[in-house]
Each structure stands twice: as C-alpha cells, then as structure tokens.
Design a protein around this nucleic acid. Structure first.
Lengths: 343, 343
DNA sequence: TTAAAAAATGTAAACGTTTGTATTATTATA
DNA sequence: TATAATAATACAAACGTTTACATTTTTTAA
C-alpha cells in the first residue's frame, strides 16, 4: 500500500492478455469487430485491474473534450446559477460537463476567460456578456476559430455566427407596468440597473412605453438607475432614493428580485403599507419573493429553461456541419407575471 | 473565410521559421536555453500566426490538467455557491480552474461523479458528501489511486488520507440557543433538517446541550427535523409544524437561513409578532436575513472562507510529496452570531 | 483440401505537447 | 589556429488513446 500505483492503461491489459492495444481499445468499445470471447476477457481484465480510461488522451485523440465552457458575470445572482443548473442538466443528459467561470462583471476578465477557453479545453462556449462588454471582437474571434458559441441574457449586439437566447424584457416590463396602471396606480416609480446593460435598457423601455401609452406623467424623480454591482451598495442606493423622493409613489416597478425586496424592506421600515400605500413588483422570481412578507408580485423569468435552451442550441451546433454561415438563431423566451400580495 | 481553419500548432511555427518543434516549445516557455533572438522570432511568429497552445496536449504530456473537480449536493443552496466562489477564487489565483458538478443529494450520483473524475480530467477533488453517503469506499478508492481529496461540510466519518474542513456546528448552535435562554426565552423550539446529515446532527446536539445545561424542559413537540430536500416542501413542512404545535414557543432556533425565513414568514402570517411573541434565529447568513422585515438574527457561517480554505488544502496536497500517509488535516472554522431584529 | 471470403487481430501513425539526450555551432582558451 | 568549453539547436521518445490499413486466422464453398 505504500507504492507508486501507476494508473493501469490499455497497454497493461494488452500485455496481460497477450493481445494488441488496438484490440483492447476496440473491445472496451464493444466494437463487434472483436470476437465476443475476447471482448469479455478484456472487459473482465479491465474490471479486475481497475482500468479507467484516460479522458485527456481520449480527448487528444478524438479532438473532443465533451466539456462546455460557461462564462457568467457573477456567481452571487440566483438567476445565473439557475441558468447554469439548466445548462448542466441538459448537458449531462448529452454527455457533456460544464466548466463555469465568472467574469466578475469585468470585460477584461471576460476576455481572459474566453481566451483561456481557446486552448482547446472546451468544445463550445456559452456566454452572458458583462455590462462592460461593448466590443465583440473577442467573441467573433472565437467564432472564427470554429468554436461554437451561444450567447444569453445581456446581448447588446447580435454576433454573426452565434446563437442567442434572450428574454422579452421590454414586453415583460410593459405588461407589469400596464398591470399597475390598470390597478389604478398613477405615480409609478421605476428602479432599474446600470443602463449599460441591455436588459435594463429594455426593461426601462417597457416601463416608458407603458407609461406613455396610458398617458401617465413620467417624473424623472421617480426613476432610479441603480449603479451598484454589489448587494450592499444596492441597498444603500435604494434607501437613499426612496428617502429622497419628492413625490410619494403609489407603485414601484423594479427590475430585479433583489431590487424589489430591498425596496419592500425599506418601505416597510419607513412605515409604509404594502400594497395599500405602495405596490411593488420584482423581476426574476427566483424564490425569495414568495417568502417575503408580504409576498412579492414578480415577473417570472424562465431561468432554468433558458439554461436548457442555451445548452440545446450549443449541442446542436456541435452536431451540425461546420458550415458557420447560416447559424445565428435568436430565441426569445416568454415571461409571466406572477401575482402576489405586494400588488 | 469559408475554409477549414486548422489550429496553428508548434509544428507550423517550426516549419515557418525552419527550426525544430522543440526549440519553438522552449522559446515560448521563455527557456533561456534558446537564444534571445530566436525566442523573439518565435514569439512574434506565434502572435502573428495566432498560435494558441493546446491545453489537452499539454495535459497529456505533463500529467497535470490544472483542473479541480468539485462535487456539491445541490446548486440551489447559496451556501454551496458561496463555497464554490471561494474555491474558484483561490484556485484561479493559483492557476487552476474548477469543474463543478452536483450530486443532486443522491449517493448514486455522487459516486458517478467521483468515478467520472477518476478519468484523469482533474488533478484533485473537493467533495461535500450527501446525506445519503454512508459508505466511503468510493472516496477511499479515489484516494488510493493517489488523487488528492478534500472533504467539507457534511462529514459523517473522517476519511484517512483526505483533508477535512468543517464548521463548529454544535458550538455555534449551542451559543445561539444559550443566547436565547439568556434573553429569558423558555419555550425554545428547534427546526433542523434530516438527521442523516452530520451537520444537522451537530446542530441538534448543540441545541440539546444548551437546553440541558440551563435545565430547560425539552418538548418533543417543539422539535422538527425537516425531511424535505426541496424548497417548496420545506415550506409545507414548517407551516404544518408551526400550526400544529401544542405549546406556543417563544423562540425558534433554526438550522438554515431558509428554515428561518420560512418560519418567520409563517409566524407573521399567523399574526405573531417577531421578536416579541417569538424570536427566530437562522443559520448561514447568506444575505437574505438582512433584507427580511424584521431582519433575522443568524449564525454567520464563513462560507466563502471555507471555499478558500478547502482549495488551499487541496493545492497544498498537489505540492506535497506523494506521501499519502500523513495527510488528514481537519480544519474547523468558527462562526459568529449576528444579532438583528428577530431576537 | 484448397481457394476465396469473412472474421479477428495486429501495426503504426496520429493527436500536440514536453523533455532528456545527442548533435552542431559558437565562443573562449592556449 | 586547433581545441576545449559552452551555447544553441535538433532528434526522438513519451504521454494514452483511436483508427486506417495490413496481416493473420478462421470459416465457407467448391
């Protein structure tokens, strides 16, 4: 039990059975070209000797690693985790593993991650660009090298040769705001995120569109574009917004579950009643909205399904001919307004 | 732009510059054995030709993949994500990537994942065993093959040859319950998880120890071992527990943030005042406790640090001599009781 | 019982690196 | 200016597979 236990490899089995490596390899593959009795001998020997194929050698030989690279802007956002869960699930069913890395909301990290994926470790890449990502050269580069790419969530610009999966953000928030208006709310505030993010642009657009359509006055005072990329500062920002607002809103449409929860928290602490004084809507619906008291009305985003879809598109690319020319599918996923006590 | 763009490899550079592959390889390594002028030529050529090293070939040749395999019981638990974030962070700083997979709370999946990691894809493994994991043969097996292993969180049995990182669960919950007692609470309920999980055993132990030490009556009626492994059913279980309880508790010690939040939610809906009627403590402190109204007192677990520690131990193992004999460090991390409005 | 066909196995190149050792080119030394 | 020492480079094996093609063995048919 002390010794240098070398991995057993095909050669060892071959030597033991006095046959060639090729035959061993084929036997373990259940290749009918090798006689049944030999196959059985090999499989037995492999088992008793504790053979485990070397994935790296396999990959080098086959040119496939069966690994999918995933780049998300951050880990501490349930949305991304949920998407990853969806990816993982679909991928595993199709015999792929996923290698996740975070770009930490930084374009530079995103680029680095992408480059590190260029080294042949992954068969394809799933990427959710950061808000800083304005240039797409690094992505196009990867695609030009023939590596399949699927983008999701925050897509500022369609990248030729990649597939895209997005949510109908504008439509979703339009509907949410419309719902508030129809409830009779007239002073509807908006809390969104950095406008560098396409998703926040779209959610803002939906808000504005709905307000305009119903001829509601739009007060700049009632609009906050949260700049923080960090839980703690989001809280600070929202608090000071709510405390400093000149007109008291009777509803607040919020672009994130977390914004929604923070908003409700602050409102409650300030002594407002939800939903009677102020109604609140969140975006995402990743579990917490249901637990809060009062529970939070949310736009439910199909995050898990998004992950599955994204993985499906990528794996389809693997199986397509390498004809890059006519890819670029854009899949839009639908949301749903889930009504709860906060409205 | 149509064509089969083959990856450029060392050979291509070598041919172009009319030198040997070995020299190219060494030049790119900045190996002083190759003349400075040659090095520069090679590096330039590599850049202009768009050379990217092939990670797989490198790994095969070097016997190192620089990938760490991580197995967690589930994705949708902020604790595990936070640990992964810690691992990822430390790993990246030391030039490792992480490959996460979920055992989905199933021993069988855990085993499968472990086996798939035996195929040489990862240099070492970080594992948090599921509650179903009673046998450790599969882990010992891996260790016997010389693959470094670090275990964390839910460790039922110390595995020789592996490092362990745990939290002082019993101590933490003892302190929390003691705190409640000193606050004058007398009917302290306990809500924990499946007793197959060591962490829940320990947290229960801490509760019992504290109650005994202060001669508090222990009512079985006030104790719930939640069996669900699923958010939705946790809610159902806790609700029916709270609604069916014969004595109204004046405090509830809870073994999870989520249990705590669900408890608070149900109590509030039932019309109780927190903390005046009932105080509540959660375990974990992964962000939500702060947002809830009232905010939740929690035992703060150093999850991120746990991840870092675990990664550190693994990477240390990589650098040690392969002398398996005297490994098996057990690192215990401290918790902290964070006081908020729910107590 | 032998030639042809089919089945089983073997040989060797390939995947893209790294690296120990051998070889060649350059410089220093006498 | 020949030679020893050193610097620079090249050769080839190794990492553990897969697989096209070659070879050997077995079976079939005449």
């Amino acid at each position: 039990m002390t010794s240098k236990k070398r991995r057993v490899k095909l050669e060892d089995i071959a030597r033991k059975l006095n046959i060639s490596i090729a035959t061993v390899s084929r036997a373990l593959d259940e290749n009918p070209r090798v006689k049944l009795s030999t196959r059985e001998k090999v499989i037995n020997a492999a088992k008793t000797m504790g053979y485990m194929p070397n994935q790296i050698a396999k990959s080098l030989s086959s040119g496939k690693t069966n690994i999918i690279g995933v780049i998300i802007p951050r880990y501490d956002e349930p949305f991304f985790i949920e998407v990853c869960r969806g990816i993982d699930n679909y991928a595993r069913e199709h015999n792929y593993k996923i290698l996740i890395s975070s770009s930490r909301n930084s374009f530079e990290f995103e680029r680095e991650n992408l480059i590190s994926f260029e080294r042949g470790l992954v068969d394809g890449i799933i990427l959710s660009p950061t808000h800083e990502t304005e240039m797409f050269a690094h992505i196009k580069n990867i695609i030009n090298k023939g590596i399949p790419v699927v983008l999701f969530d925050n897509i500022r610009e369609e990248v030729p040769g990649a597939d895209h999966v997005i949510i109908e953000d504008d439509k979703a928030s339009f509907e949410a705001v419309e719902f508030l208006i129809k409830k009779g709310k007239t002073r509807i505030a908006f809390i969104g995120g950095i406008m560098e993010k396409k998703v926040f642009q779209n959610r803002y657009k939906g808000y504005i569109d709905a307000m305009k359509k119903y001829n509601m006055p739009i007060h700049d005072d009632l609009i906050l574009h949260c700049k923080s990329l960090d839980r703690e500062f989001e809280d600070v920002e929202i608090q000071s917004f709510l405390k400093g607002v000149s007109i008291i809103p009777d509803a607040i449409f919020t672009c994130t579950d977390n914004y929604g929860l923070l908003t409700m928290k602050t409102l409650l602490r300030m002594g407002y009643n939800i939903p009677d004084d102020v109604a609140v809507i969140g975006f995402g619906d990743l579990g917490l909205g249901e637990v809060f008291v009062p529970s939070m009305t949310c736009i439910a985003q199909p995050s898990y399904e998004m992950g599955q879809k994204v993985a499906e598109l990528l794996i389809n690319q693997f199986n397509e001919s390498n004809d890059v020319s006519h890819r670029k599918k854009v899949v839009k996923l639908k949301t749903q307004l889930v009504l709860r006590d906060s409205t």
